[in-house]
Design a protein around this nucleic acid. Structure first.
Lengths: 123, 123
DNA sequence: AAACTATATTGACAATCATCAATATAGTGC
DNA sequence: GCACTATATTGATGATTGTCAATATAGTTT
């Protein structure tokens, strides 16, 4: 008898309505970290910048990007600044020009974090 | 003689200052598509939702997520709506409850787009 | 039918962000 | 030094976004 409990009663006992959740594999701080990586990638201009840098290793200056993309120079510098401060790209000054390259270790580390997450989600 | 050209002159001839850019491997429309995928992932709450859904396949209702995350129910429904409208998760109504699951084909397609891009960037 | 419950939607608000114009910085060449 | 060039920074603006309170919808239980 009386073994029936309402949803509200079960909630007050700390129970779930549908499932006893397993240990989560992604804590809040890891989620924050991963979302930082993803936010940095989640812009079409920055994706194209990375593509151009990768296709022309060690040779791309800001004016090349300006010629290749439909945005003005300050905006390109803005995106490069975000990528640079996150460590994903490096600059080498040569006279007036600034040559940008992808920072391999940082890029590979971010890619690995992302790959690991996506693999855990659906093996 | 006279073979010296200014940067401005070279730009008017359509030349680049530093590099003759190779064909780009990521066009604007592909960049838009990819950034849509990435924007959807680039939120710590949505990452944790996906993690919980993956760890408890076919059993997670909204109230479970509400119990597991530090945000209120309308916000959870908001994030689930974004994932649902993008096709990444599916709902199955069971009485009052709504059970969410990751939509495997859509998730794998997005993951593959992302993996392919990251692989092209730095092989 | 009436009370209750789980979820979805709407509207408002604050925060973040992409973009550009204007300006600053720093190197080059006369 | 002076004119010029490439890049960075600052400040402003419009758009997007995450969050919540309030409300709506729909299923359940008595």
């Amino acid at each position: 008898m009386g073994a029936t409990t309402t949803q509200a009663q079960r909630r007050m006992l700390g129970e779930r309505c549908c499932v006893e959740p397993e240990a989560r594999r992604l804590g809040p701080s890891q989620a924050d970290r991963l979302s930082e990586d993803l936010k940095l990638l989640a812009d079409p201009v920055r994706l194209q910048i990375l593509d151009i840098l990768a296709a022309n290793p060690g040779q791309v200056c800001v004016c090349d990007l300006e010629a290749a993309l439909p945005i003005l120079q300050p905006t390109i510098s803005h995106h490069l600044g975000l990528l640079r401060r996150a460590g994903w790209v490096s600059v080498e000054r040569k006279g007036l020009w600034a040559h940008y390259t992808i920072n391999r270790p940082a890029f590979e580390a971010g890619r690995e974090r992302l790959r690991a997450f996506l693999e855990v989600i659906l093996p």
